[in-house]
Simulated assay, not measured.
Amino acid sequence: MDSDVRHLHASSFGAAADAYAAHRPDYARDAVRWALEPAPGPRVLDLGAGTGKLTATLVATGADVTAVEPDRAMLAELRRGLPTITALPGNAESIPLPDACVDAVLAGNAMHWFDMAVAGPEIARVLAPGGVLAGLWNTVDDRVDWVEGLTGVSGPAAIGPRDTPASWRTETATLHLPRTDAPPRFGSATQAEFPHGQRRTADSLAATLGTRAGMLVMPEDERESALARIRSYLSTRPETSEGEFTLPMVTCVLRTRRL
């Protein structure tokens, strides 16, 4: 993805901030606990926090959370939903916090948008020694038959790179870590996966997939056609054709530590 296309995708969410807040899933608590396990203290920065999906899960684990989000509409949704949280405008390449002020930096479905050549040193700056950097991604579990079918019907705009466990493992093995520098700021990374799920209906699952960046940047007629195809598929499956069901998911985590 070239820089112009990447920027178009990364900046697409604000126009759908209310739908994002309504339909995107939270994160498996076991995944968040594992991400924070080596952190030297409770101070956590949720970087690229969006509407606060990860922020809320962090709060539920007892973390002392600060959220940073570049998009005004997404930030407004976060502040509306979590009014007691410190939520600041800013981005991974210019974090509006002082040096060594947090024990962990977490990013939920956001690290792939960071320019890590710039963001890596900036994240290292705000982390205390021994602090944790972790990216979390919610993926759909395509080891389940009907979910595998859904990935084929939906296409890469709705379920693409990093959106299934196997593709996530490949895409994030080294791609989103801070680049090696001398002396190195971060240690080696570890991947882990945690089962998760989201209660959906056919309509709300289509709405969830409609909040993916690839879908948001589509021409309206193509987007509506893709959503209609997804709804049609879900209507034919016994698992999803009537009422609520659980979308099988995996919260995947890539974790490293500040040296």
Rank of each mutant, 00 (worst) to 15 (best):
C101L: 01
C101T: 10
V102F: 03
V102E: 02
D103M: 00
D103R: 02
V105E: 03
A107W: 00
G108Q: 03
G108S: 08
G108L: 10
N109T: 15
A110G: 11
M111E: 05
M111C: 12
W113E: 04
W113K: 13
D115L: 14
A117T: 14
V118C: 09
A119D: 06
G120F: 05
G120L: 09
P121M: 07
I123K: 05
I123V: 14
A124C: 07
R125T: 04
R125P: 00
R125G: 02
R125Q: 06
L127E: 05
A128I: 09
P129R: 12
G130S: 04
G131C: 02
G131Y: 02
V132D: 08
V132M: 02
L133R: 15
L133P: 12
G135N: 04
G135R: 11
G135P: 08
L136K: 10
W137C: 15
W137P: 09
W137R: 15
N138C: 15
T139G: 04
T139Y: 01
V140W: 12
V140T: 14
D141L: 13
D142H: 15
R143F: 01
R143Y: 02
R143H: 13
W146N: 10
W146Y: 11
V147G: 05
E148C: 13
G149W: 11
G149I: 08
L150G: 09
L150Y: 04
T151N: 01
G152F: 09
V153T: 03
V153H: 03
S154Y: 00
S154L: 05
G155A: 06
G155I: 08
P156K: 14
P156E: 13
A157N: 09
I159H: 05
I159P: 01
I159A: 07
P161H: 12
P161A: 15
R162P: 00
R162H: 07
R162S: 11
D163M: 15
D163F: 12
T164H: 09
T164Q: 06
P165Y: 04
P165S: 09
P165Q: 06
A166H: 07
S167H: 05
S167K: 09
S167P: 08
W168I: 04
W168Q: 02
W168V: 06
R169F: 11
R169A: 13
T172A: 08
T172S: 08
A173E: 13
L175F: 06
L175Q: 12
H176K: 00
P178N: 03
P178Q: 05
T180L: 09
D181A: 14
P183V: 07
P183Q: 03
P183T: 11
P184R: 06
P184K: 08
P184C: 01
R185T: 07
R185C: 05
R185P: 00
F186S: 02
F186L: 09
F186D: 01
F186T: 05
G187V: 07
G187K: 04
S188W: 09
S188N: 12
A189S: 15
Q191I: 05
Q191M: 10
Q191F: 01
A192F: 10
A192E: 06
A192H: 14
E193I: 10
P195N: 11
